Computed example of a mutant assay.
Amino acid sequence: MLNDLPVIDAVVHAFNFTGANFRNQYGSVFADRITRASMLGPEGFVLDGHDEYRRNWSIDDAARVAFAESQTDLAAYHVLPIMAFRDGACSIEKAVRAKQKWPHRFAFYIGVDAMSGAAALDEMDRQFDMLEGDAVGVKLYPNSWLADEITGWKMDNPEIAFPIFEKARKMGLKAVAIHKALPLGQVELDHYRVDDIDRAAIEFPELNFEIVHGGMAFVEETMFQIRRFPNVYVNLESTSSLLTIRPAQWERVMAQFMQSDGMRKKILWGTGGLMVIHPRAGLEAFQRFRFRQETIEGEGIAQISDDDRRDMLANNFVRMTGIDMAARLAACENDEFSQARRQAGGMLPPFSTAPTASSPQDPAVVKA
């Protein structure tokens, strides 16, 4: 809880950035990029050195950092289809382990490479079955790293994208989360624009589309989308890191996204922890955030309110996915994370629960 407000982190990660997990040359490039970004966090919330990030994070690490070291109550784990890694970077096996241990704490997104064609549809079935149907969405990337050359696709492509959406609709999934606005290395920017989401939102009104990293680029285009389409949301993964490293940019982005009551109900709190930003760092900065008076007057917007925070931190995700937050929170009251915080008299220090790179890890977790 953040000042008695429930917190749902719309994206948490348990990356496997070990060299053994690289499928091709792009794995190292991707791991280095995320590692460098992670080391830009505020003092006290950054690990000591490159090697501390470049390892196989277990789902247990992610859970402890989120639920014992921060105010986060629930979190969405995205299975990642970044096939520059043998396990996609965040594996389905880690999702299964999380479901077995903490089904009340996690919501799950399956993840597939849309450019793998019919195999992607089969993979959706496989992951859905492994989670025993306990999934709320599907995670996609606009690039594919399966071949020697990086290829890309768009959300309005009826041959590549629409079969994925139709499958998601038939499976009863609520959300399609698409990585946008943050190009991953030397790739065409065109695939990271948001314009192609328009047609997807029109053709599949039963699905909700999350612009993951919304606001890192294409702010005005994203603003118009969440204003026009009832089924388009902004996921603040990575964007929330601007709170601590570029606060003026954060304020400009949020001034665009919060221009009306309806738009304020389309924003999902997300950190990308435990690597993109430590979840506690983002939440504490968000708790302090207020629009400056000149921004309020210049943009013609209202000051952020407790109701706005309540919506962004949890209620918007609940409306989008339909999860039973009350039941989940009740199940959290005496679980291992709540007990650990009570015994410690509060949140545990940042990264104190995660092993160092040289620490021994459970072989079963490493294998996952």
Rank of each mutant, 00 (worst) to 15 (best):
L2A: 07
L2P: 03
L2N: 06
D4M: 09
V7I: 14
A14K: 09
A14G: 08
F30T: 04
D32N: 14
I34K: 06
T35A: 02
R36N: 15
S38E: 06
G41W: 12
P42A: 14
E43L: 10
R55E: 12
D60K: 14
R64A: 15
F67E: 01
A68S: 15
E69V: 07
E69N: 05
L74A: 10
A76T: 15
F85Y: 09
I92H: 09
A95V: 06
R97T: 10
A98C: 07
K99E: 06
K99W: 05
R105S: 05
Y109H: 10
A119S: 02
E123Q: 14
D125L: 10
Q127D: 13
F128W: 11
L131Y: 05
A135H: 05
L140W: 13
S144Y: 12
G152K: 09
W153Y: 15
I160P: 08
I160G: 09
A161N: 01
F162V: 04
K174C: 11
I178P: 02
Q186I: 13
R193C: 06
A200N: 04
G215S: 01
G215A: 00
F229H: 11
E237N: 11
V253C: 02
A255L: 04
F257M: 04
M258D: 02
D261M: 04
G262E: 15
W269V: 03
M275H: 10
M275W: 11
H278A: 09
G282C: 05
E284N: 05
F286I: 14
G300L: 05
I301H: 00
D308M: 05
A314T: 10
F317D: 00
A326P: 01
A331T: 08
N334T: 04
D335S: 11
E336I: 13
F337W: 07
F337R: 02
R341W: 01
A344Q: 00
L348Y: 01
P349W: 06
P349F: 07
P350C: 10
D362I: 13
D362K: 13
P363G: 12
K367F: 10
K367I: 07
